[in-house]
Amino acid sequence: MALLAAIALSSFVLMSSPTGDLAISSIKVVSSNARRYPNKKQDLAFVHFNITADLTPLFHWNTKQLFLYLEAEYTNSQGVKNEVVIWDRIVRRKEDAFIKFVGKNKYMFRDPSSSFRNIPPANYSLKYNVMPYVGVLTYGEAARTSEAISFPPTQSRL
């Protein structure tokens, strides 16, 4: 047990912070029919982004893999804070830990109120979860947008 505890504690000593850059190139909000209710309209947001991150400092002898995800944080019209994962990736090797990705959200981004109208701007952040062979999971942030980004007006789907 003492050996496992020493291994787990050494992971905190060896950990250093990664560097990254996150840019949101465009956001498009489209009105669409809801999945379960065909007569109800719902807004969907499509976020186009650029990620550049060097996560190699997170890999050491006790790192099994990284879970990397892009999160949108915003407060809806009822005043409830929402944190929505819109993209993710698992990084299993140190050789794959330099991320350069241009794309759009992988998961559907919608608000429970069915509309992005009158919602304050959102902040976007690139976060990670280090999964070790032995020890506790550690979380962190690799990049964040410099300013909050507003949702554009809704467009009707063609």
Rank of each mutant, 00 (worst) to 15 (best):
L9N: 04
S77Y: 09
H60M: 10
F101T: 08
K127V: 02
E95Y: 09
K104G: 08
D88T: 05
N118K: 15
D21H: 06
K41S: 12
A34I: 00
L44P: 02
P132C: 09
E95A: 15
F109W: 04
D96A: 14
F98W: 12
N39D: 14
W87F: 07
N76S: 08
V85Q: 04
F59G: 07
N33T: 13
S113Q: 11
D54E: 09
E71F: 01
P18L: 05
Y69C: 05
L14K: 14
H60E: 14
Y128T: 04
N33F: 12
A45Y: 05
V13F: 10
Q42G: 01
S17P: 00
F46E: 03
K127G: 03
K41M: 12
I99R: 11
L9V: 07
F12H: 07
M131Y: 15
N76V: 06
W61K: 13
F49C: 06
A53R: 07
A53P: 08
L44C: 06
E95V: 15
R36D: 11
S16Y: 07
D43E: 05
S114W: 14
I119Q: 04
N118E: 15
A45R: 01
A23C: 01
T63P: 08
N76W: 02
D21Q: 06
L70G: 01
N123H: 12
S31F: 00
L126N: 10
V80L: 14
V85A: 06
E71I: 02
A97D: 11
A8T: 01
Y133C: 10
S10W: 11
N82G: 02
P112D: 14
L22N: 00
G20A: 04
F116Y: 05
M108I: 08
D43K: 05
K81A: 10
W61L: 12
N129F: 12
H48C: 05
V29M: 02
P132W: 14
Y133P: 10
M131S: 11
L58S: 10
P121V: 07
A23R: 05
Q65E: 15
E71M: 05
V85K: 07
R89D: 02
T19Q: 14
S31Y: 01
S10F: 11
I86F: 01
D88S: 02
V84P: 04
P120K: 12
L68P: 02
S31A: 13
D43G: 06
K28L: 11
F46Q: 03
N62L: 12
N82M: 12
T75K: 14
K100Y: 14
P112R: 13
S114Y: 15
I7K: 02
I7P: 00
T75S: 12
L22T: 00
Y37M: 10
F46Y: 12
